[in-house]
């Protein structure tokens, strides 16, 4: 990310992120049957090391769901949850099941990532009238640094500083250990900003 964004552009991206995140939080609340909020999205241009530090430590195991975004403003959507939080989360949602196989566990997170990612993308799409589509979700349960760096590389964010719009899920006033990233490919932000009349 070499380009500088003005304060007003950053604000606009935060607002877009906010509407997307609000949609996702509503979807998540409905799934969980309790109130989930999302923190005000941050628009960050950081080094990889700092991006990792925002979530945790390099080798920490996270459940990660990646959706590729195709269409007018391509990029990646990444949903991360720390492993212990993911366990709690699965227990809440799968409360009635006596036996949870790995397959059900993986499929649960894929579906959660799918719903969150699509509510987010739909919000951006409605706001900007850009045509955006997502891939089927792919999942990885692995080291934070490995999934995060691979997701940025895949979105062709090759410079020393990378850009992400990210937000935290908040449950009962506490951070829930879930993070949500929108990682635009180069050029996608310009397209979004142009649509918002801010370029």
């Amino acid at each position: 990310m070499d380009r500088k964004l003005s304060e007003i552009q950053l604000d606009a991206l935060r607002e877009v992120g906010n509407i997307g995140a609000g949609n996702s939080a509503t979807a998540l609340s409905q799934m969980m049957g309790k109130r989930i909020d999302m923190s005000l999205p941050q628009v960050n241009i950081l080094s990889f090391e700092d991006m990792i530090k925002r979530v945790g430590t390099e080798e920490e195991i996270v459940v990660a769901v990646l959706l590729k975004v195709f269409g007018d403003a391509p990029g990646n959507i990444l949903f991360l949850m720390k492993q212990d939080k993911a366990q709690e989360f699965a227990e809440t949602i799968l409360g009635g099941f006596s036996e949870v196989t790995d397959e059900i566990y993986l499929s649960l997170f894929q579906e959660v990532g799918n719903i969150l990612g699509n509510s987010y993308i739909n919000a951006i799409s409605r706001l900007t009238s850009l045509s955006l589509l997502t891939s089927v979700p792919a999942i990885s349960i692995d080291m934070l640094a490995a999934v995060l760096s691979s997701s940025f590389m895949d979105a062709q964010q090759y410079s020393d500083y990378v850009l992400a719009i990210d937000t935290n899920f908040i449950e009962d006033g506490k951070k829930s250990g879930g993070n949500f990233f929108y990682i635009p490919k180069p050029g996608s932000l310009d397209i979004i900003l142009t649509k918002l009349g801010l370029n």
């Binding site: 990646l66 089927v136 692995d142 999934v147």
Partner: peptide, 17 residues
């Protein structure tokens, strides 16, 4: 050089690894 996410759809495969 791993491909962290396995997509079933060929267009989505991350081949940078």
């Amino acid at each position: 050089g791993a491909s962290m996410f396995s997509f079933t759809d060929k267009n989505s495969i991350l081949d940078i690894g």
